[in-house]
């Protein structure tokens, strides 16, 4: 009978391992694969616009952290991450001279560029298995006061995209103050709070790391 218990134990353990593999390990690996595949799309736009758009890597990571703060469930977070890589792919259809213009845009050009979100979404819809990502892509420049019922992940991308862009062209403090001013109008207030919280925590973390390394060095 002891043999029977052994066999039973081994069976149960291997089934538990199988379940863990099937429901935790494999989905995570597949998500990583997806991201790696879609990175090529982001890279394409980065090259086409000489780095002005689609800087996906830092954005994906930051967006995921902000979403986690807001309690967005894992599957939604993963979708949002995929949307980060695909959001600017519509730029392939925007004329090259407009994208790479050195002088400020005219209103007509601005309007043309604004169409990229819609084009990105329609390209996303054509990739099998990604139709659920398309709504987030379509609304990744959503304005809170116009469409407050848009998915939270779209609001996150909208605010974060602006924050990153301003932080790059000016500095992080200016970007944060723009977000603060726009909270409730252009940006979702909760999202703004979460982003600022995350940024604050990171600067603190960086400072600590800096002091630590300085202390070690001394």
């Amino acid at each position: 009978m002891q043999g029977a218990w052994w066999a039973f134990g081994i069976t149960v353990a291997s089934i538990a391992a199988l379940a863990y593999y099937a429901f935790v390990v494999l989905p995570a690996r597949i998500h990583r694969w997806r991201c790696e595949g879609l990175r090529a799309f982001a890279r394409l736009i980065e090259l086409r616009t000489q780095g002005r758009y689609a800087n996906a890597e830092s954005m994906a990571e930051l967006a995921s952290a902000v979403a986690q703060r807001l309690g967005v469930p894992l599957h939604e977070r993963r979708r949002m991450e995929l949307a980060v890589y695909l959001r600017d792919i519509g730029m392939v259809a925007i004329p090259y001279p407009v994208l790479n213009k050195q002088t400020p845009f005219t209103p007509a050009e601005r309007e043309l560029i604004a169409r990229h979100a819609e084009i990105s979404a329609s390209i996303t819809e054509q990739i099998p298995g990604l139709w659920q990502v398309a709504p987030i892509v379509r609304l990744h420049h959503v304005v809170y006061s116009e469409q407050s019922d848009a998915p939270l992940s779209a609001h996150i991308l909208s605010a974060l995209d602006d924050w990153l862009r301003i932080a790059e062209s000016a500095d992080a403090d200016t970007a944060s103050s723009v977000l603060k001013q726009g909270a409730g109008a252009r940006y979702h207030p909760m999202v703004v709070q979460a982003i600022l919280g995350e940024i604050h925590q990171r600067t603190l973390g960086n400072l600590q790391a800096l002091t630590r390394s300085a202390a070690l060095w001394l």
Binding site: R34, G37, A40, F41, V92, I123, I127, P128, G129
Partner: peptide, 12 residues
């Protein structure tokens, strides 16, 4: 996924 990525890029 692998094939999808390739075909989507091909489409572009």
């Amino acid at each position: 996924l692998y094939h999808q990525t390739i075909r989507s890029l091909g489409f572009l």
